[in-house]
Design a binder for these strands. Structure first.
Lengths: 332, 332
DNA sequence: TTGTATGCGTTATCAG
DNA sequence: CTGATAACGCATACAA
C-alpha cells in the first residue's frame, strides 16, 4: 500500500492494474475499452480507494461541470429557485456553486468574478444591479432581467400575471383598486407587473391608483404602512382591492390593515405575486399569482447547458396562475 | 492582441509585462515583489483582461478555497442556514458548493462523492442518513448529528431548548402538556428535545404525554392530525399546552386545532422549535424556541477552516431562546 | 484496442 | 529579488 495520505491518482490505478494511464481514463469516462481491462481497472480503483479529481479535468478541458447561481438573498422565492436549479443541475450531473450577493452590488460583482475564476461552465444570475458587467466568454442566463439579445432572460409572464390578478379581483366584486409596487429604479421584467395592472384596469374601466415606491432594498416590510394609513377613513380603506408586487408586500399590507381593524377579505381583498407558501410547501400565505419556479429553473438550466448558445430565444416568459391564499373571497 | 477566444494566462501576462511567469504569480498572490515589477505586471493584467484561473491552483496546491454544504432540502431553516454559511464563507473569500440531497440517502452519498471529487477543502453536512459514510482525508463538520470524537458536531442546545419551552408553558398557566415529536429512526442531537421535555415535566411535576412518530420524511404536514383529533372531546383538547419538535409541526397542529374550533392561545398554547419567520425575516409564525442559525453557521465555518482540525471540541451546543409568535399567551 | 507523450494554468523549488 | 523549470491529475492526439 502506498502513502495513505497521498490520494491515489489514475497513474497509481494504472500501475496497480497493470495497464496504461490512458486506459484508466477511458474506463473512468465510460469510453470503449476491452472488458478484461475494464474489470482490472475497476478492481484497482476499488482496492486503492481511488477518487476522481475534477480539478485535473477542469484544467485540461476547461469544463468543470459546475454552474454558478447568483441570487440577492434567501427570500423564500429565491430559496425555492435555488432548490429547483440545484435539482435540475443534479439531474444532469452538474454541480452548483451558490453565490448570495446580499443585495450588495459590489459583492455581486465579486461573485461574478469568483464564478469566472472558478471556471464555471455558465452563470445563472438574478440581479438588480444597474451597472452589472457581464464577463466575456462566459455563457450567462438572467432571471427577470433583460440585458440584450445575446443574453437569454427567463421570467414569468409578469404582464399577464397582473392582468389575471386584476380580473380576479373584479370577478370577486372589487370596483376600486390600488397597486402597491416597490422596485429598484431599474426597469426590469418585473416592471411589467405595473404595466399589466394599469392595462387591465383600463380594460375593465374601473378606477385605480398606483402607489410606487422606489427602494433599493425592496424587502422592507413597512414600505406601504404610511400609504395605507393615509387612505383609511372611518375604519374603511379607500379601495376594495389591492394588488401587490410581491407576496411579501401583500402579507404586510394585510397585517397593517388588520391592525387598523379592516377585515380581509371581507372589506378588502388582496392579491400578491410570487406564490410563497408556509414552510415552502403548505398553504399560500396570501392569495397570489404563482410563479412557475420549477419551470423557470428548468428553463435556465437547459438554456445555459444547451449546445448552441447563440441560437436561443432571448426572452422567455413562462405562464403564471392565480392561487387562493385566503385574502380573497371564495368564488360563488 | 492574441486570440480573443483564448483567455490570457499568467504566461501571457509575463510576456506582455516583460517579466518572468513566477513574478506574475507573486504579484497576483501579494508576495514580495519589486514595486516597478508590480506596476508593470498589474498594467499587463489590466490591458490583457487577465482572469485568475482557480483550477490551476487547485490542481497544484490541492486547495480550492471551496467548501461544500449539504442539506436535505430548502426548508426555511435550511435556507437560513445556507444564507449564513454562505455569508461566513464569503467573508473569508471562500466559495460555496451547495448540495441538496432531497431527503434521499443515495443522493446524499453522491453529494459527498461529488464534493470530494471537486476537491473541496471541507464539507459541512446536515444529514439524517443512518448509514452515512465519511470520506477519508476530508475535513467534515456535521450539524445536529454526532458521529464520533473525530468529527465536530455543531448543534443548538436541544435539551435546554425543550426545558425552556416547558417552563414557559408552565409559567403561562399550562398544567397538562403533550409533546408532538416526529423524527427519523436515528438518534441525533435533535432527539434531546424529547429528553429535555420529559425531564422538565418531571421537574415541574406536571402530567404529560409524548406522541412520537417515526417518519423518514419528517416534513409531512398532517402527521399529528389523527392524534389531535383523537384527543379532542366536547370541543376541548385533553392538553392545555403543546410542545412540538419543529415550527412546521406546531404550525400545522395550530391549523388543525383551529379547524376543530379550538382557540389558540386561549384554549391551548403551542410552542415549536426552530425560529421560522414569515418570509425569513418578519414575525415568528408560531411561538418558538429560536435556533441561533447565524452562530451555528459561523461556528461550522470557523471550525472547518481552522488549522488544527484535530484539537477541536467534538460537540458544540449553542444557546437557544424563546420567542413569542402569537400561539402563547402574553406574560402578565 | 492500448500505450506514450504532451500540455492545460498554477505554485514552488532552486539557481542566478 | 527575479527567472527558469518541474510538478499537480487528467484528457487526448498520435504512435504502436
Amino acid at each position: 500500500m502506498a502513502e495513505p495520505n497521498n490520494k491515489p491518482t489514475m497513474e497509481d490505478v494504472a500501475r496497480e492494474a497493470g495497464v496504461a494511464l490512458s486506459t484508466v481514463s477511458k474506463v473512468v469516462n465510460n469510453q470503449r475499452v476491452g472488458e478484461g481491462y475494464r474489470l482490472k481497472v475497476n478492481k484497482a480503483i476499488e482496492s486503492l480507494g481511488y477518487r476522481y479529481n475534477n480539478s485535473g479535468r477542469a484544467l485540461r478541458t476547461s469544463k468543470s461541470s459546475t454552474i454558478a447561481l447568483i441570487v440577492p438573498s434567501m427570500h423564500p422565492f429565491f430559496a425555492k429557485l435555488v432548490y429547483h436549479v440545484n435539482a435540475a443541475l443534479s439531474r444532469r450531473n452538474y454541480t452548483m456553486m451558490l453565490f448570495i450577493s446580499q443585495d450588495d452590488y459590489a459583492r455581486e460583482k465579486e461573485c461574478m468574478q469568483l464564478a469566472v475564476e472558478n471556471q464555471v461552465d455558465g452563470i445563472i444570475a438574478l440581479t438588480y444591479n444597474p451597472s452589472l458587467e457581464i464577463p466575456k466568454n462566459t455563457s450567462i442566463v438572467t432571471i427577470d432581467r433583460f440585458f440584450s439579445q445575446e443574453i437569454p432572460c427567463v421570467t414569468s409572464d409578469n404582464f399577464e400575471g397582473s392582468r389575471i390578478a386584476v380580473h380576479k379581483l373584479y370577478e370577486l366584486g372589487c370596483r376600486k383598486l390600488a397597486l402597491l409596487y416597490s422596485c429598484s429604479q431599474l426597469r426590469t421584467e418585473v416592471s411589467k407587473r405595473k404595466d399589466g395592472f394599469i392595462s387591465a384596469c383600463h380594460e375593465l374601466g374601473i378606477p385605480f391608483e398606483t402607489k410606487e415606491i422606489v427602494e433599493a432594498r425592496a424587502r422592507r416590510i413597512d414600505l406601504f404602512d404610511d400609504f395605507l394609513a393615509a387612505h383609511v377613513h372611518d375604519g374603511r380603506l379607500d379601495y376594495d382591492g389591492l394588488f401587490c408586487c410581491s407576496d411579501l408586500a401583500a402579507w404586510y399590507a394585510c397585517n397593517k390593515l388588520r391592525e387598523m381593524g379592516i377585515r380581509i377579505p371581507e372589506d378588502v381583498q388582496v392579491i400578491g405575486y410570487d406564490g410563497i407558501r408556509a414552510f415552502g410547501e403548505g398553504d399560500y400565505l396570501v392569495s397570489t399569482i404563482v410563479q412557475p419556479v420549477q419551470e423557470i429553473a428548468e428553463t435556465c438550466v437547459s438554456t445555459i447547458l444547451s449546445e448552441d448558445f447563440s441560437s436561443r430565444p432571448s426572452l422567455i416568459c413562462l405562464p403564471v396562475e392565480f392561487a387562493d391564499g385566503g385574502t380573497t373571497k371564495k368564488m360563488p
